[in-house]
Each structure stands twice: as C-alpha cells, then as structure tokens.
Design a protein around this nucleic acid. Sequence first.
DNA 1: ACAGTATATTCGAAATCTCGAATATTGTCA
DNA 2: TGACAATATTCGAGATTTCGAATATACTGT
Lengths: 118, 118
Amino acid sequence: MGNELRQFKSEIFQGLAHPTRIAIVELLREGELSAGQLIAKLGIEQANASQHLAVLRARQIVVKRKAGNQVYYSIRDHALIEILDILRRYFYSQLSTAVGLLREAAREESKSRNGAQR
Amino acid sequence: MGNELRQFKSEIFQGLAHPTRIAIVELLREGELSAGQLIAKLGIEQANASQHLAVLRARQIVVKRKAGNQVYYSIRDHALIEILDILRRYFYSQLSTAVGLLREAAREESKSRNGAQR
DNA sequence: ACAGTATATTCGAAATCTCGAATATTGTCA
DNA sequence: TGACAATATTCGAGATTTCGAATATACTGT
C-alpha cells in the first residue's frame, strides 16, 4: 500500500534534488518567467537551463505557456512553495542547533585545555 | 544570497530521492525502530538498508541511538513529516486533476466520434 | 522564403548513485 | 576468550545524472 505514492514522492524529490532547480522554483515563486529571463537570472548555459526545465516539466513541478516566440514557466502547485518554506525554517533551526553544538564543543575543549592535558 | 540555503535544500531532497528512503522515513513516523526492524519491514538486503540509512544519516534526516547490540533510528525533525504530508495531499490533488483530464479527453473523443469523422 | 531570435533536444564524457557480495566492526553472552 | 548477532563499510559493476557543444525546432518580421 502507498507504494505508488512513495514512488511519486521520490520523483518530486528527485526533481528538486539540484541547486539549480531549486533556484528556478524560487525564481518562479513570485510568478511566471520566460525561459530567457530564467537563464539570465541563473547565469548558466542556455542548454543547461533548458535541461533542468525539462526535468521540472517531466515531474510536473512546473508548467509552461507559450506566447509567440517565448515560453513562460510557472509553478504548477503552491504546495511546492510551502515545502521550500518549511525547509527554510528547518535550515535555520538546524543552524541554531549547530551553533549550540559548536558552543558546547568549545566549552568541552576549554575544559580539557584547563584540565589534565595528555 | 541564499546560495547555501539552496544547497541545503537540494541535499535534503537528494536524501529523500529514493523510494526506499521515503519508506524508511514513513516507517519512522510513529517513532523509533531498530535497523533490524526496518530491514524486516522493508524486505530488502541488510547491506542495502544500511546504505540507505547512511544516506539519511549523512543528510541529518535521521538520528541514531545505540542500545546494546542494536541501533535505533528516528526522524530528526518533524518538518520532514510535514513535507511528506504535503506531498501526499499534493499527490491526491494531482490525481483528481488527472481524472478530470481523462474525463475531458473521453468527452472530446466521443464528441469527435459522433461528429464529422475524417 | 529568408534571416534572426528563443527554446529544446541529442550526444558523449565525467561524475554520482545503487545494488549485492564480501568483509569489518561492535556488542553480548557463555 | 570465543562464538554469535546486529549493523556498518568497502568494492566493483551497472544505471542514472549532469554538463557543454552541437544541432534541431518553432516562431517572428521582412
């Protein structure tokens, strides 16, 4: 049960498993952009951008609209934005945890520096 | 700006970009399980499960606790569960959209079947 | 029809991921 | 200590991903 659902989820994750594709989704957050605009903002090769867009399209993460010569991309579903937001919060909470861990490590270190060194 | 954050996000997605790892996270939803229990429920090779657990550990998605001979795993942060839930809802909404599209296609087809065929 | 612009696809090489087999590590119990 | 159980790591082969270069496709304006 839920095997198909699991497959679906992992495909979405694969679709987002590259910094460039995350960047694309984030750029599309405010609304649609043409492929050309995306390429300009990303500062990468045209072919490469197009390949990443193809991945996002294949996973239905993104949707395209043709207007004359150009192709406008937009996010298919707000759920994905929500997910990125959750991860942003998660990142910062992990960060503060990491800071805590570093402080603790520093405390340990000074303790051993002051105590019996070997 | 946010480059590091983007890297972080894509690493989390990479961490979850495999059905087996999704299954592991889902199994851990209710609470911790030992590696052995996970392997039994997953029904895969011990080495393979251990490798997937290593991936989840490396990305800090999962946390381990040793108890004697065994190692108990649990989810490090509830945020990830939230994400899986969002994707579950998303999956079903896409599914109903797909059904809608199929219906529409069927309607189109019968229309052209009844109308002037060429 | 032709030149030009925007975007997509194909190709091949390098990098990364995934798997099972084999082996290593760690802890328990006698 | 030695045998055993639980888990992790290493290795090599095959699959997949990623990249830029080259090429193809589609649309526009003349």
